[in-house]
Design a protein around this nucleic acid. Structure first.
Lengths: 216, 216
DNA sequence: CGTTTAATTGAGGAAAGTCAAGTGAAGTGG
DNA sequence: CCACTTCACTTGACTTTCCTCAATTAAACG
């Protein structure tokens, strides 16, 4: 099951949703604010993050087309979200979604599936963050992006990096300089190749997988 | 809501469950095996982990009394679990649980809550792993243990460490030596105090919180 | 085309990893 | 009950890696 919603369910929800547009860098909602709506990305990329008291950001996830976000228990957003690119999304009022859910068992099941998927992603993220070496972290990160691209039926000859180096660093748990150096390392050894700053290709798949699977 | 199940629901499930006992170090189930049963801890502590191809372990969670584990989509366990202490648990056959769930909307809701809770924990784990300094990781880890103790209505004057240093290291993403040194550091500065290897007290709460909240 | 922002690169220092030795605790068998 | 074995933990010395700060280059934008 690739998509959260079947086209039929999507249509049912479209009735109660509106389409919203954000430009790059817009904050969609803030952590701690009342959760009034849930969003379903049509196009673009969003980052979910948490800000600590000392001002540093920790990115918990990148969200792509078809991803649902803004779900919250207790009715308050548990993180903040900001667009990484221009974004078009469905905005579903929480109240409408709630009444829809209670009458629609199929939808509820899909929400459970969505939660399972989010859980798997969070665990994968933890797995990535546990790596000691920046090279290994980056390889796992690129693997993730590639898998997500494939899941969206996009071509995987190239990996697309919509986010900047700083965002990558905040996701993989290193400085942005370390991200840059890791890319340089992978490029220098001929494992990857950049077409431009946000497009790369994996040249040596074996060496790439080896680095990704190395704990050390 | 502290417990996954109300005592009433617990009673309903008890009918279809059996009680199993494990001694310290027993493997409850293996990653990749067919998921035949779900477990609900009565007493003791369990660790959930994933083994990488090169033999290293990554601990994804520690599970305590009232925790439910062994849930899996697709019917295959996605991680391995091993006891950290002797454990007594309810074992619920998957088939029985499945038929129970479809007839019992309240239970399904609780499973959703359980998933949300697991998700929050996984995100907290990622948050912890993103910390650069071992001291900060350890402080967050101790905070987590303390919160879980409080959630179980156990006294929080002392924090109990049922797992060994190696397990802690595999959870917080450092070597076991680093765990030891971090404890030494916190002890030397009078922030914590050990009664024995697995019991400690927080003496300087302010300094403790400060370290826990420091990103750096 | 100039200005601003993003990314790269270098040098020095701090932190944690690794390896190895030593200490302490717990459990076993005589 | 005590000596002995074993395992868990601690501690030290050395090495590696990454972070920080700073300077430079490259790209994006008005």
């Amino acid at each position: 099951m690739r998509q959260l919603l079947s086209s039929e369910e999507r249509a049912r929800l479209a009735v109660i949703s509106s389409i919203v547009r954000f430009k790059k860098g817009d904050v969609i909602y803030h952590q701690g604010h009342r959760a009034n709506a849930v969003f379903n990305i049509i196009s673009g990329v969003v980052k979910a993050y948490q800000t600590t008291s000392d001002g540093s950001k920790h990115i918990t996830a990148f969200l792509f087309p078809d991803d649902l976000f803004g779900l919250s228990d207790e009715g308050w957003y548990t993180n903040s979200t900001m667009t990484v690119t221009p974004v078009i999304a469905y905005q579903l009022p929480m109240s409408a979604l709630r009444s829809r859910l209670s009458r629609d068992a199929g939808l509820e099941f899909h929400v459970i599936c969505k939660l399972c998927q989010e859980l798997r992603q969070a665990q994968h993220h933890a797995f990535l963050l546990a790596r000691r070496h920046a090279l290994s972290k980056m390889a796992l990160f690129l693997q993730l992006l590639e898998q997500l691209q494939a899941a969206r039926d996009e071509p995987t000859t190239e990996i697309y990096l919509p986010m900047n180096r700083s965002d990558i660093g905040e996701y993989v748990g290193t400085s942005l300089e370390a991200v840059s150096r890791a890319f340089r390392g992978l490029t220098a050894t001929g494992i990857i190749e950049f077409r431009d700053r946000s497009h790369l290709k994996i040249l040596d798949r074996d060496a790439f997988e080896k680095i990704a699977s190395e704990t050390n």
